[in-house]
Design a protein around this nucleic acid. Structure first.
Lengths: 216, 216
DNA sequence: GTCTATATCCAGATAGAC
DNA sequence: GTCTATCTGGATATAGAC
């Protein structure tokens, strides 16, 4: 099986070259704008090998999808072993994905920034995949144990990881020039304490009155 | 110009039929999996008319994109006229988009659930479009006036609208069966007050102690 | 197992009649 | 301005030599 996050052995095996070349091309140009010939020439292998190993373009996309979801699953498992509290687990997940966005850009882009249903119709939707189910389970448990606010689990999960996902998208698009880990503290504070300005912050009196009225 | 959110006049003009048919097909199957012939037969017009009016498939996608962004822009403008405070404006936007997701499903899906860069490379990215710039401006102003927490505007905007966007995606995918407006209150509470359980809520003492430690 | 050359298909686009 | 029939390019996929 190919290694994407880890370094590939030397000499790099053929199927690993194919997968990394395809990953880069899919992310750069979009699945439908990439031909098998492009993958072939960038990976420096022949068409025959591609069809022999993966059965075609869709087979490559499928192998990539499965493999990356597996790695993400391992990541979440590792975090669940290291942390017990839901809050800590969520923080560790956000931190890890922010770091991954910088170090393994295309892997994150392929998972978070791609419409898989358009070319892998037989695959279950990503929200139903193992790592994402685990994230929701973490949140659900946090709610049950009183650690997180009593709320619909869908809403809670969307709110906790939605901001993160959005920032990752903006970073991948190039709209944000700063590496994401820089924003980690800000994001977590907004998550747990909300977006309304603290009373002890230096704010205009008029705005403060307005806000108090709104919160009541 | 075609009307997508409003009812089309009767008899429905030809270009309106083409656009609505294309919108439905693009959302259902993905842009690249739709042929001009499919659009043609669903809209019940000839190929010639399509090329005459829009110059091809990409022209249709482009017209849809521009038109829908324009409608979204009007929506945001209307909200900015009705509300002065940033918090109220954000709440109104979330509420409106939740409602639109139920009543104009495919329009929301085309804007929020589609990778436009894959087939409209010349278009600016959606985050740079007028309505989205206005949303960030609203947040930025709220921060400057002390209404919202002092934070990087990118982070603030992502956190405020990220949860909303995620829920819209889940609803469009069919993962969530309940109409989104039902979750509005929950989402807004998580947004402004954060996700940590209130102290006066009924929580386990052990969890409470753990959380206090985490917040310090 | 790997490569080259080739076949097949279908999408996007056009030309010209009405 | 609208339609029908046709063309062309390029993509996926295969067959067969090494």
């Amino acid at each position: 099986m190919p290694y994407l996050t880890q370094a590939c052995p030397d000499p790099e095996p053929l199927d690993c070259r194919i997968l990394t070349a395809a990953l880069d091309l899919f992310v750069e140009q979009g699945y439908h704008n990439v031909s098998v010939h492009e993958i072939q020439s960038r990976a420096d292998v022949s068409i025959g090998s591609i069809y022999k190993h993966f059965g075609g373009k869709e087979g490559i996309a499928d192998a990539l999808y499965t493999h990356i979801l597996g790695e993400l699953d391992q990541l979440v498992d590792g975090i669940m072993e290291q942390h017990a509290a839901a809050i800590e687990r969520c923080e560790a997940i956000v931190a890890a994905l922010f770091r991954h966005t910088e170090t393994h850009r295309n892997i994150i882009a392929y998972i978070f920034h791609t419409k898989h249903a358009d070319f892998l119709p037989q695959q279950a939707h990503i929200c139903e995949s193992s790592p994402f189910l685990k994230m929701r389970a973490i949140v659900e448990q946090g709610i049950q144990q009183g650690e997180l606010r009593q709320t619909d689990p869908w809403v809670a999960t969307a709110c906790i990881f939605g901001g993160m996902a959005r920032l990752i998208q903006l970073r991948l698009d190039g709209s944000i020039g700063t590496p994401l880990p820089h924003y980690l503290e800000d994001v977590l504070q907004a998550l747990w304490n909300g977006m309304i300005a603290d009373k002890n912050q230096d704010i205009l009196p008029s705005a403060g009155a307005k806000i108090s009225k709104l919160r009541s």
